[in-house]
Write a protein that binds this DNA or RNA. Structure first.
Lengths: 230, 230
DNA sequence: AATGTTTTTATGTGCATACATAATAATTTG
DNA sequence: CAAATTATTATGTATGCACATAAAAACATT
C-alpha cells in the first residue's frame, strides 16, 4: 500500500482515527516512520498531519510527538458573507431598505464595546435586508466617524453599510458573537414577525489596530439557521 | 527589506491588503515575483499565500493568478467542544443530570433527518448540563441503536451522551445548524428561565458514512453567546 | 535529593528542483 | 471565421536535504 500524495495520507490517517486504530490521546508514529510506511517523503506526511492538526483532530508538540486529540474540538467554520451575496446564494432576489441614518451619541453599552468616549462622533445606521421582498435581516450599526470620516458623506440609501464598509474601510480583526434574542416591538415590526419571537443575533465588532471601526448587530428572522459542517 | 520566513511574508501581504495597496479583486504579483522581491524561495511565498487563501482573503486559480478576494467571506471558526470542557474553560464547576433515557420511536422529523425507518430502534436521552449548579444547556438526543448497539447498555447517568459518544463511537462527518428558539414550558422549567425566552439552539447530526449515528439538539440559556474572531 | 546542564529527538521550516495541472493565450486547421 | 489544437504560464505538489527549535530525557553537579 502506498500513499504518495498528502491528500491520501491525510485520508488514511483520518480513517485510522475514525476506525479507532489510533485511540484518543494516543501517540501516533513519527513523521519519519509514517513516511517510510507510506513510501513518501517526510514533507508529505508533515503536510497531511499539519492540516489535520489545524482542523483540531491532532495535537502536535515538538519532540513530544503527535497524538490524536483527546477531545476533538470540532472547528465549525461559518462563512460570513456580505448579506447581499448570502441572499443571492439562496436563489432569492436581494432587496435593501434604509430605515435610519443619523449622527447620534452611542448608548453606553456600545461606547463601552467600541472603547470610545461619550462625545465621540458616531453614525448610526439602521437598515433592512430583504429576500424576495420579505424581510431577511435587520441591521443596526454604529460607525466611528473619527476612524471612518468618509462615512459622513455616504448616504447608505442604495448600498448597505455592510457592503460599503467591507469594500472601503480597512480593518485588522474582528470579534463575533452569536446569540438569541426575543424580538421587541420595533424589531418585530420590521421583520414582520410576532413580538417575542426568538431571533438569531450576530454581533460583530470590527477593529483597525486598536481602534474600533464599527459595531453591528444583525437580527435574522425566526426560522433563520446558520449551517456548517464538520 | 527581506522577509525570510512564511509568517513575515504573510504579515506583509496582509498589510498590503489591509492598507489597500492591493485592491479588491486585483491581481497580485506572481509567487515567483514575490519570492524575488522578498528574497526567499517560492515555496515560502506559496505557504504564506496558501494560508491566506484558506482564510478566505485571497482567491487563487492556476494560471489565472492570485487576487485579493472581492468579498472576503469571513471564515469564523467556532470551537465546539465537549460541554464539560466548555464549562470548565469558563472556570465554572461542571454538573450533569440525566432527565430521561428510554427506547422510543423517534418523531417523524427526527426520523427524516436521520434517514431511518419508522420501526428503527432509537434511544432517546435527555439531560441537563450545569455550570456552578445552575442550568447551562439542555441536551435532547436520539441515537440509532442499530448503528451504536453499545449505547443500549450505557446508562448515561454519570457520563453524558455528548461525551460518551465522542469517545466511543466513530464518525465520518456531521452537519451543524445554529438557530434561535423560544422556550416551551418544559424547556423553560429545566433551564430555569421564563417561557418564551429566546434560546440559542445548536443542532448536530452525526454520520458514519451513509448512516446517521445520532441527532442532538442543545438548548442554551438565554444569555448564552457563541464567540469567535476573524 | 534538588538543581542545573547537556544531549537527544520529533516537529517546524526553508530551499532548490522537478514535474503535474488547470486555465488562458496563441496557433493551426476545417 | 469558427473550431480544434497546441503552447504557455501560474499555481499545486513531491522530494531530498539542511538546519532551527522546543521539549523531554539523560546526565552531572552541588
Amino acid at each position: 500500500m502506498s500513499f504518495r500524495d498528502w491528500q491520501s495520507v491525510q485520508e488514511e490517517v483520518l480513517r485510522r482515527i475514525h476506525a479507532r486504530e489510533w485511540r484518543q490521546g494516543e501517540l501516533i508514529p513519527t513523521e519519519a516512520e509514517l513516511a517510510q510506511e507510506f513510501g513518501c517523503a517526510r514533507t508529505t506526511v508533515n503536510r497531511a498531519l499539519r492540516a489535520l492538526a489545524e482542523a483540531g483532530l491532532l495535537d502536535r508538540k515538538r519532540k513530544a510527538g503527535t497524538r490524536v486529540a483527546a477531545a476533538p474540538v470540532a472547528k465549525a467554520t461559518l462563512d460570513i458573507a456580505i448579506i447581499r451575496q448570502e441572499v443571492a446564494a439562496r436563489g432569492a432576489k436581494y432587496g435593501y431598505q434604509l430605515i435610519d441614518r443619523s449622527m447620534m451619541r452611542a448608548p453606553a453599552a456600545v461606547r463601552g464595546a467600541m472603547q470610545v468616549t461619550a462625545n465621540c462622533k458616531t453614525l448610526h445606521v439602521q437598515a433592512l435586508h430583504m429576500a424576495n421582498a420579505t424581510p431577511y435581516a435587520l441591521e443596526d450599526r454604529w460607525i466611528d466617524c473619527e476612524v471612518v470620516p468618509q462615512a459622513l458623506v455616504e448616504p447608505f440609501d442604495t448600498i448597505s453599510a455592510n457592503e460599503w464598509l467591507l469594500q472601503h474601510v480597512p480593518y485588522t480583526h474582528g470579534d463575533i458573537a452569536i446569540s438569541a434574542k426575543a424580538a421587541d416591538a420595533d424589531e418585530a415590526a420590521h421583520l414582520c414577525c410576532p413580538e417575542q419571537a426568538a431571533l438569531l443575533a450576530i454581533d460583530r465588532l470590527t477593529w483597525d489596530g486598536t481602534r474600533a471601526v464599527t459595531k453591528v448587530r444583525l437580527l435574522f428572522r425566526p426560522e433563520h439557521e446558520l449551517r456548517t459542517e464538520l
